[in-house]
């Protein structure tokens, strides 16, 4: 494999006239998709824009469409995604492209806040630290979703986001679900209201792309189902909306 050259196509969008989009990259035994993109930028076309930071699957910066599906490129071996010796790499779906492989993540993070994915504290620094029971059912629910790295792979995978720009998306709603189950968070009413609006959890069709593509094996679809259950319960209890 080391002697071969990989045929890499970079999807640089409709404004890329005149720019190089096909690259021959020397194959290595151990090579991630991010390694390939970095090789192109360092050796073939220094104008290629892309984003990465930690290179070890923690920061959530380097997600791209690889062979048509969203992936974290730093933890994806190129050998896993090659079709023959070729693959196409593009910017994340469902987000505005800034240039080449770099997308504007603002809508993604704005929706995180819109879903009340922020801490709602009830204590002051003078209060004793609240005890968290790791075995409580609510804590187990919360723990299932807290390893999200905000990479936006689920957001790019979601067809409901594609069809409805207002939809908050899987990552933001999963965050709302973890906070709803967090004993230290007191934003229950605010969260349930935030996920019950026009772009809320009830838009989800449970197609499951978020859960299928999450690189951390999280399950946003089930988290959203949890929000649907809780909002339905509060609908009968409080008659809200």
């Amino acid at each position: 494999m080391a002697a071969e050259a990989l045929k890499i196509t970079i999807d640089r969008g409709p404004n890329a006239q005149g720019l190089q989009t096909e690259f021959e990259v020397p194959a290595q035994d151990n090579q991630t998709v991010l390694d390939v993109v970095s090789w192109i930028q360092q050796n073939a076309d220094p104008t290629l824009s892309y984003r990465f930071a930690c290179r070890v699957g923690m920061c959530g910066s380097c997600a791209m469409m690889v062979g048509g599906v969203p992936r974290w490129t730093c933890r994806t071996h190129i050998s896993k995604v090659l079709d023959g010796n070729a693959v196409t790499i593009g910017p994340l779906r469902n987000l505005p492209v800034i240039k080449d492989l770099a997308v504007d993540m603002d809508p993604f993070f704005d929706k995180w806040v819109a879903a009340e994915g922020v801490h709602h504290g009830g204590l002051t620094r003078d209060d004793p630290i609240a005890v968290v029971d790791e075995t409580a059912p609510a804590r187990v629910e919360a723990n299932a979703g807290i390893e999200c790295i905000n990479c936006s792979v689920c957001y790019a995978a979601c067809d409901t986001v594609t069809g409805n720009a207002d939809y908050l998306g899987p990552a933001a709603l999963q965050r709302a679900w973890t906070l709803l189950n967090d004993a230290k968070d007191e934003g229950r009413v605010a969260i349930l209201d935030a996920v019950s609006g026009n772009g809320g959890c009830h838009n989800c069709h449970s197609m499951g792309s978020c859960t299928a593509y999450c690189p951390n094996d999280l399950d946003p679809m089930s988290a959203i189902a949890g929000l649907k259950r809780e909002t339905a319960k509060s609908f009968f209890k409080r008659g809200r909306r």
């Binding site: 019950s196 609006g197 009830h202 838009n203 339905a232 909306r241």
Partner: peptide, 11 residues
């Protein structure tokens, strides 16, 4: 799809 529409459709 708001909560109200969702509930009406489910009920």
């Amino acid at each position: 799809m708001t909560l109200r529409l969702y509930m009406l459709q489910r009920i």
